[in-house]
C-alpha cells in the first residue's frame, strides 16, 4: 500500500526532477533524458521480471519496434510525433502478444533464453525491410529541444511508475504475484495465468515502446544496430534487480544510482566502467540479493548481520 508519506515524498521528488531543465546544464539534461528513459525500461521490465517472475531478456525488441514505428510513421507517412508513438506502441504490443503466447508457456531459464533470441531475429527482419530503411536506417525530422524531451521522459516514467503502483495494490497485481509465487496454485485459485502473463507482457511492451519512440525522435537517427541494442536488456535487468524487483520504487532508484555510476566511470575509461559494472552486479547479488529496497527496509534493524544472513540463507 502506498501511504501518505510515500506519496508526498514521491510528489516532491517528481517536482524536483521536473525543475532540472530550469537550472541544469545541457549535459545534465541530456544525461537526465537517458537516465529517465533507462528507469522507465527498468520499471517496465519490473512488471514481468519483478511482479510476475518471468525474467525477459528480450524487452529491447519492444524498444526497437517503438523506435521504428515512430520513425516510419513520421518519415514515410508524414505523421506527427504522437501518431508515430501510437504506431510504435501498436507494433510492440502486437509483437508482445504474438511472441508472448508461445514463449510465456516456458518457465524460468527457458523463458529467459527464448526471449534472448527475439531481439536478434527482429533486428534481422527489420534490416531486410525497405520501408524501414533496411540496414542503412532512418533519419527523423530534426527538433533539438532537450528540455521538452526531458519533461516527456519524466512524464512517461511517472505514468509507468503510477501504473506499477496501482498494479501492486490491485487484483491484477495480486494475480501476477500469485503466478510468480506458484503458477499451478494460482490457476487452481482461479487466476487465468495465460491472460495475466500476456497482459503484463503487453503492458511492459507498451511502456518500453514509448521510451524507444521518444529516444528515436530525440536522437533523430536510428538503424537496426542502435534500435535493437541487446545490451539494453542487460542494463534494464540489472537496474531493476539492483533496486529491488517486485517493488514500486526500487527499480527507479536503482537505475538512477547505476546510471550515475556508469556516467561517471564512462567519462574515464569505458573498459574500466564496464568492468566495474560487472563487479557491482556480482557484489550486489552476494550481499543484497533482494535489492536495495529490501536493504533499506531490513538493514537498519539488524546492521551488518543483514549481509551475513543473506549469505547464510543462499550459500552452502
Amino acid at each position: 500500500m502506498m501511504n501518505k508519506k510515500t506519496s508526498i515524498a514521491a510528489a516532491i521528488a517528481v517536482a524536483l526532477l521536473a525543475s532540472v531543465p530550469l537550472f541544469g546544464s545541457d549535459v545534465v539534461v541530456q544525461f537526465g533524458i537517458d537516465a529517465l528513459s533507462m528507469a522507465t525500461l527498468a520499471q517496465a521490465w519490473n512488471l514481468m521480471g519483478g511482479f510476475t517472475g518471468y525474467p525477459s531478456f528480450g524487452n529491447s525488441v519492444f524498444y526497437g519496434l517503438g523506435a521504428y514505428g515512430t520513425a516510419i510513421a513520421m518519415t514515410k507517412f508524414g505523421m506527427p510525433f504522437g501518431v508515430g508513438l501510437a504506431a510504435g506502441v501498436a507494433a510492440a504490443t502486437s509483437c508482445a502478444a504474438l511472441v508472448g503466447l508461445p514463449i510465456l508457456r516456458l518457465r524460468g531459464p527457458y523463458f529467459a533464453i527464448a526471449t534472448l533470441g527475439v531481439n536478434g531475429a527482429m533486428a534481422e527482419i527489420v534490416s531486410n525491410l525497405r520501408i524501414a530503411g533496411a540496414d542503412v536506417g532512418l533519419v527523423l525530422p530534426l527538433t533539438r529541444n532537450d528540455a521538452s524531451f526531458y519533461e516527456l521522459s519524466l512524464a512517461l516514467l511517472v505514468f509507468c511508475t503510477g501504473c506499477v503502483a496501482w498494479a501492486a495494490t490491485s487484483r491484477f497485481g495480486m494475480g501476477l504475484v500469485a503466478i510468480r509465487e506458484d503458477e499451478a496454485a494460482a490457476s487452481t485459485m482461479g487466476v487465468n495465468a495465460t491472460l495475466y502473463k500476456v497482459a503484463a507482457f503487453v503492458l511492459a511492451a507498451a511502456f518500453t515502446a514509448v521510451a524507444g519512440g521518444i529516444h528515436a525522435y530525440w536522437s533523430t537517427f536510428i538503424d537496426p544496430a542502435s534500435a535493437f541494442d541487446s545490451t539494453l536488456n542487460v542494463r534494464m535487468v540489472i537496474m531493476c534487480v539492483f533496486g529491488g524487483p517486485g517493488t514500486v520504487f526500487g527499480p527507479v532508484v536503482g537505475s538512477f544510482i547505476l546510471s550515475a555510476i556508469y556516467e561517471v566511470l564512462a567519462a574515464q575509461i569505458s573498459t574500466a566502467a564496464a568492468l566495474l559494472f560487472g563487479v557491482v552486479i556480482v557484489v550486489a547479488v552476494i550481499f543484497m540479493p533482494k535489492g536495495l529496497a529490501d536493504l533499506v527496509q531490513q538493514a537498519p534493524g539488524v546492521g551488518w548481520r543483514y549481509f551475513v544472513r543473506n549469505i547464510r540463507e543462499n550459500g552452502i
Partner: peptide
C-alpha cells in the same frame, strides 16, 4: 555464497 539463491540471482 549464492548457490541456493533464486534462479534469477
Amino acid at each position: 555464497l549464492v548457490v541456493r539463491s533464486a534462479l534469477l540471482n
